[in-house]
Design a protein around this nucleic acid. Structure first.
Length: 604
DNA sequence: CTCACTCGGATAGAAGTC
DNA sequence: GACTTCTATCCGAGTGAG
């Protein structure tokens, strides 16, 4: 991992200078959203953050329940809220995951004091029973401090030895040791682990920080403008993308330094040899089993990929535009621990231009439409009125149309991925055409409403791209794989493995949408001989159940999934709230489940 | 500065169901 | 006729590159 030190003096990016006032509006909108519970619900005052509990505001039942619904025991949530004070939802999630990592780490002694308390038998739904959090057979031995005491002398504070804290942050949470050391020097040796973790995150995303609640504003999407509170700070900068950083002009100095997107966005390597990075050094905790593969939109708000990467063992994302695999762009980031050598593409190689994919389109394609590939296939399509406006604009002028009309029509065509289907007539791609472009078998989504088909396809993998990355598994698992598929959608991962000729012995699939589950099940029954187990809610996949599945099937070889992008995608005008958004926060379940699988498989 | 691109959401009204 | 479900239509801004 390469780091460099950058001077904050150069941190003012020009685009932030012109709209500073807008931040207030944005923050107001963000706080009013239904994202993860934040301080606006509990409205704790400044005094609630103190460690001794004086003036602690008791969290509301609804805010507690949100986290309980995510799979955290209520006691753990209450404790985390208490420790977190007014640091906001972002910090709270991290703290909860910290506790959970503690509970799942067999190397960490857990006494009655740890947050790993058994979940009270309170759930009405048996399927939603939360497992005991201290069932890892590691309870004997050292006893920790008492967790549920009214005193705040909890386990975190008991770990007063600085070495233990550093060890903890490095080994359990996976922070780089040098950053942990810097955080200790910033915050002092008495700082709690949660404060140190906050500080490290803040140093990565918003400059030096220690116990300053402004961190959350700086770190949140649309939050306070950067550079407001960190004058003179120096901080570490991380290089992403696995490629050399060229110039480091003034634009490099933003506080929330975006993860560099490679240009061309070709990932580590491509079948055509455009790039050929075939080796990399994975961080120790990232090395399997199991293999894992995570996907999301590349063009996420600032800081999102940095945080995702941090949770997923500091692995650099592989940013790939699927335009190198098919006739439509699809800019996505993939974090995985798969080997890079001996990748092979799916055959037949899909057409990479519109005309090759849809030869009929050439007939009506005007010479002034230069598109040869589609833009990203999305979940919504143009309305009929929109198409009619385009038709009228073209019929009411000469041929070729004047530049203004051309620009208007081209803009709409690019925005909505329209194809020419007649004289002056454009239309959206049909669902089966999207299936083709995305690498799915014909009629894969047929049978559900048109709107649902567009939505499901717009949310899916590009199969050829994913299959290229997964192709290295074929020789490694000649007798088949057991797969944990999270946020399966219409089964892009499963289709990719199938098309690679990889047998799936067991697939545990988690997908919220019933129509998507039906699509996957239907395809599975037609093509597979293995066992498919479908689960509707990722929140019900507790570590207890994961362990039961692992004992039953012998372990998972691959954990794969792309968590919801709703709150990350640029098309979302209403709730682009970042990783803490209502849907996109489910990423933390991916991390939770992956951690659980690794821990259980390491133990059994 | 301009330009290009983006796995979307809220709403009203239509259509379907009982 | 009340209710639910489905469909069509409308709605910019964040971000990076040049």
């Amino acid at each position: 991992m390469v780091h460099w030190v950058s001077d904050d003096e150069d941190s003012d990016k020009f685009e932030w200078e012109s709209d500073g006032e807008d931040a207030v509006t944005f923050n107001a909108a963000g706080s009013g959203s239904s994202a993860l519970p934040s301080t606006n619900i509990d409205a704790p005052g400044p005094s609630t953050r103190v460690a001794n509990g004086n003036g602690t505001a008791w969290p509301s039942a609804s805010s507690v329940q949100k986290y309980v619904d995510m799979g955290f025991p209520e006691e753990m949530v209450l404790k985390a809220m208490k420790d977190n004070g007014d640091n906001g939802a972002d910090s709270l999630i991290e703290l909860l995951l910290t506790y959970q990592a503690i509970c799942n780490d067999p190397s960490v002694d857990k006494g009655s004091a740890s947050p790993c308390v058994p979940q009270a038998a309170k759930d009405s739904d048996d399927d939603d029973d939360l497992e005991s959090w201290d069932d890892d057979d590691a309870d004997e031995g050292n006893r920790g401090p008492t967790f549920d005491e009214s005193s705040d002398e909890d386990f975190l504070h008991e770990m007063s030895q600085i070495d233990e804290k550093v060890d903890y942050l490095v080994k359990v949470l996976g922070f780089p040791e040098d950053e942990v050391t810097m955080a200790v020097s910033r915050c002092g040796q008495d700082a709690s682990i949660s404060v140190l973790a906050d500080s490290i995150y803040a140093s990565q995303t918003a400059g030096g920080y220690c116990g300053n609640s402004s961190y959350h504003e700086d770190n949140s999407y649309g939050g306070r403008k950067k550079g407001m509170s960190m004058e003179g700070n120096k901080r570490k900068r991380k290089r992403f993308g696995g490629q050399a950083q060229g110039s480091r002009g003034p634009l490099d100095g933003s506080d929330d330094e975006p993860m560099r997107l490679p240009k061309p966005m070709a990932g580590f390597n491509l079948p055509n040899g455009l790039r050929s990075v075939n080796n990399r050094l994975l961080p120790g905790p990232a090395i399997g089993p199991p293999y894992f593969y995570y996907e999301n939109v590349a063009l996420a708000p600032k800081g999102v990929w940095r945080k995702i990467s941090r949770f997923l063992y500091d692995i650099d994302p592989e940013f790939v535009d699927s335009k190198y695999f098919c006739a439509a762009a699809r800019k996505r980031g993939y974090i995985h621990n798969l080997p890079l050598v001996n990748r092979s593409p799916l055959l037949p190689i899909p057409p990479k231009t519109i005309f090759d994919a849809f030869p009929r389109a050439k007939k009506w394609w005007p010479s002034w439409d230069p598109r040869r590939q589609f833009n990203c296939l999305q979940t919504c399509v143009a309305s009929a009125k929109n198409l009619e406006r385009i038709r009228l604009a073209l019929t009411n002028c000469e041929d070729p149309p004047p530049a203004t009309v051309q620009n208007y029509v081209l803009g709409e065509c690019k925005k909505w991925n329209l194809v020419w289907v007649g004289l002056n007539k454009v239309a959206p791609l049909e669902p089966d055409e999207m299936e083709f472009l995305l690498g799915f078998p014909k009629d894969h989504t047929r049978g559900i409403s048109r709107t649902e088909r567009y939505r499901s396809l717009g949310n899916s993998f590009q199969v050829d791209t994913v299959a290229y990355h997964l192709s290295v598994l074929k020789d490694m698992f000649p007798h088949g794989m057991n797969v944990l598929s999270l946020f399966s959608g219409i089964g892009g991962a499963e289709v990719a493995l199938h098309r690679l000729g990889i047998r799936m012995n067991y697939v545990i699939s988690v997908e919220k949408s019933e129509v998507n589950r039906t699509i996957l099940k239907s395809w599975w029954d037609q093509t597979q001989t293995g066992k498919l187990i479908e689960i509707s809610d990722v929140q019900t996949l507790t570590s207890e159940k994961i362990e039961a599945y692992i004992r039953r099937i012998g372990g998972f070889d691959l954990v794969i999934g792309g968590s919801p992008c709703n709150n990350l995608a640029g098309s979302n005008r209403h709730h682009r709230d970042g990783l803490e958004g209502e849907q996109s926060a489910l990423f933390f379940h991916y991390f939770r489940i992956l951690e659980s699988v690794k821990e259980i498989m390491g133990r059994l």
